[in-house]
Design a protein around this nucleic acid. Structure first.
Lengths: 265, 265
DNA sequence: CAGTGGTCTAGACCACTGG
DNA sequence: CAGTGGTCTAGACCACTGC
């Protein structure tokens, strides 16, 4: 192997290691993080699509002219972030929302008794799907300007044949041009899988803000509860590879037969 | 370095890698996991206390007669699980709830504006602290029998001088013999830090079940809200090194000026 | 069987800490 | 400066998959 090739690279300074722009500190970045950044860039660029195998560690080591161990450490981190999935004997694959046997990776609601798979697939009903102008809140969450075009979807998910989740979803208009209620209704599988295959938008990370609220009349009716039923309000912003917010979602969860599960570590 | 020493070891089969007792499958366990198990055992046994430095990687490699890289991988996993903390140039330390600058590691409630440190330290008021017999629910959560002695604590935490969290805490009687309201009130710092220093109980992991509820009259009074205020119910079970549940806790959170924050990845 | 990821080793060198 | 964790390499071998 030759000397490390990327320290004086002509690559634009778009490393994935968020170097915290301190003018004074050169912010040492180890080689494996630079490799990680290059792999990430290939993922963003769509060189390998969700579900695909990426090249073997040996191939990547040759491509980047580093040792296999260095590639390995880069892939380790990407796998820990759920961007890649390793399968011994087979290869390393780009994570996808489609074929994951955990159908809803970001849905933390589980039934009091049994598990989510016993309830069968969620029944989905699209209540509404329209284009409108972003409110200040939505614009801020999606890093848009107030008044920019956004798509709003309202839907109800039923678990065990009981309406359980009411969601309002806001999407930036441009990347989701062509998304309609019909298309949503026709698609079977997680919404994020549809985003992947139809719009090339891959959600990799999200953060949620959870509160307890009482529903308004509309919400109560759609969830078939009385207006004095406390509900979980789950506000989510989801991000793509490059860290851009690409979805905002506000869910109202009934928690009479389910709970939001969280592991602390 | 000599040949790996632990494959035919006389150690009792208490590896940390949960070998899933399939009689048919020998369940290959790599060396670094066995080392991890041994380090974990030393942690459980109290060989190194929270806040202490553990021996250097070179020392551990010599002790276990493996390469530094193997020790390193074992420590990597323990650090990823927040049981150890690495500090370059200084050493590897046993994680503690005491001196962490994130004072409340397991508390995910954050203010709508600003951050938790701006609100100053939480004011704590012990409402009640008594010994009683475990109900069926509590016994199940703590892996006790119904009727076993447990300690129950009720307290209110105020953030920004406003009562925000009402907690009922149940602890198994035996390990917490001698814990009184006075002792709790006298201690400044996280309750889990007190558990560490005074009772040798170290919480390393927890899971929470979150629901939306309405308070009863007592609860509403203590939190200074009206009974029609929706609150977050956060039920937590916390575990020690050996995976034994050692605390059950039910928190009621006001979410009018705070929210429960969760990162999904 | 070849090809993949997974483990283990040994040694060199770097970055950071504190005396 | 010595001691710590952090990086990088190179090579050997193991475990798993699928042809």
């Amino acid at each position: 192997m030759q000397s490390p090739p990327f320290f004086a690279s002509s690559e634009p300074a778009s490393n994935a290691d968020s170097p915290a722009p301190n003018a004074g500190a050169p912010a040492f970045s180890p080689l494996y993080r630079q490799i990680k950044g290059l792999i990430l860039r290939s993922l963003q660029a769509g060189e390998w699509k969700p579900g695909d195998a990426i090249p073997s560690e040996i191939d990547l080591a040759a491509r980047f002219r580093v040792s296999q161990g260095t590639v390995r450490k880069a892939i380790d981190e990407l796998a820990a972030e759920n961007l890649l999935v390793r399968r011994q004997g087979k290869g390393t694959f780009v994570a996808t929302h489609s074929e994951q046997h955990v159908q809803y990776r970001f849905l933390k609601l589980v039934p009091d008794v049994g598990d989510i798979s016993q309830e069968g697939p969620a029944e989905r009903e699209i209540i509404d799907c329209k284009r409108l102008r972003a409110s200040a809140d939505v614009a801020r969450a999606l890093a848009l300007h107030t008044g920019d075009a956004v798509l709003q979807v309202r839907r109800v998910l039923s678990l065990a044949h009981e309406p359980t989740i009411l969601e309002d979803i806001w999407l930036p208009g441009a990347p989701f041009k062509g998304l309609t209620a019909a298309r949503l209704a026709a698609y079977h599988g997680p919404m994020y899988a549809l985003f992947e295959t139809e719009f090339g938008v891959r959600m990799v990370r999200a953060q949620e803000q959870i509160r307890a609220v009482l529903p308004d009349a509309d919400q109560a009716r759609l969830l078939q509860v009385t207006p004095d039923t406390a509900l979980l309000s789950v506000e989510r912003v989801a991000f793509t590879y490059d860290g851009k917010p690409m979805e905002m979602r506000r869910g109202l969860y009934r928690t009479d037969k389910h709970y939001y599960r969280n592991e602390l570590q």
